[in-house]
């Protein structure tokens, strides 16, 4: 089992699908990430947790290229992608689900799905669409409905299916169940599981606050506090039984967190 050490990300052992090493990132003058490192391997179901403002979403944005880090290196499948544009990263196999505003309400469901498949080849477009609609069956009846009229859970499912149209190998999800009812939230997680099983998604990295459901799903957990990686574990199941063990990270200050 190869894993990144917390303080010095230079020691990456073995081969990982995506690795980000010593990332510093800031919005204007406010620095959000401090030497954060993360490594995602094939078959990972990585759960990224931490208090609000810990830099979880920021880290995902750095990985997908929406935010350019001031320091740090990102590798994907052995290639240095630090200087790649978002488009290049997406078309080379990284799928990214935005936390909000992740569908186009003014277009129909069908048009949204086609937009998700913009950069794939024309001749596979129809097959992909059919595959997606097999997983998200309820979208079939609503293909011509304006996406803005969908309910919260349906919107999220549509957003995920748009990301899946490209058949990403790595899926980065920013709070896929935010604002959903517990039932809708677990069905979204079901869909993600399904995507990993049948849609060729090799690894998933998810930011999620709904720990009850997501801890069952995950097989790896990374705790981010104050822009630093505070804890990494391969056994998220433990925290399901003993949530206080995880909670202690949430109440610590960033300076004390480097246990």
């Amino acid at each position: 089992m190869c894993w990144v050490t917390r303080k010095c990300g230079k020691f990456i052992l073995g081969f990982s699908m995506l690795s980000a090493v010593n990332i510093d990132a800031s919005y204007g003058r406010k620095q959000v990430l401090f030497r954060a490192s993360i490594s995602i391997e094939e078959q990972d179901r990585l759960l990224l947790v931490g208090p609000n403002g810990a830099g979880k979403s920021t880290l995902l944005q750095v990985l997908v290229g929406l935010l350019v880090p001031s320091v740090g290196k990102i590798e994907f499948s052995g290639r240095n992608i630090s200087s790649w544009s978002t488009r290049k990263r997406i078309t080379s196999g990284i799928g990214y689900l935005l936390q909000s505003e992740n569908i186009v309400p003014g277009l129909s469901v069908r048009e949204n799905i086609l937009l998700g498949g913009y950069s794939i080849k024309r001749n596979v477009l129809a097959t992909r669409q059919a595959e997606i609609l097999d997983v998200f069956g309820f979208l079939k009846d609503k293909l011509d409905v304006r996406a803005g009229l969908l309910s919260g859970g349906e919107r999220q499912a549509l957003a995920i299916s748009m990301v899946l149209m490209q058949r990403p190998r790595l899926l980065l999800l920013d709070e896929p169940s935010a604002g959903l009812s517990p039932k809708a939230a677990s069905s979204v997680l079901e869909n993600i599981k399904h995507a990993q099983d049948v849609m060729g998604v090799k690894a998933v990295c998810m930011v999620e606050h709904n720990l009850k459901v997501s801890l069952k799903w995950a097989n790896k957990i990374v705790v981010l506090i104050g822009g630093k990686v505070a804890h990494v574990s391969d056994e998220p199941g433990i925290y399901l039984k003993q949530p206080q063990k995880l909670e202690k990270y949430f109440f610590k200050k960033a300076s004390e967190a480097e246990v």
């Binding site: 929406l66 978002t86 488009r87 997406i90 937009l115």
Partner: peptide, 19 residues
């Protein structure tokens, strides 16, 4: 359609891999 979508959801258009 992507151009149309760009006005309301600029970030989305970028993360879906549109040029």
């Amino acid at each position: 359609k992507g151009v149309w979508a760009m006005g309301e959801k600029q970030r989305l258009v970028r993360v879906l891999g549109l040029p």
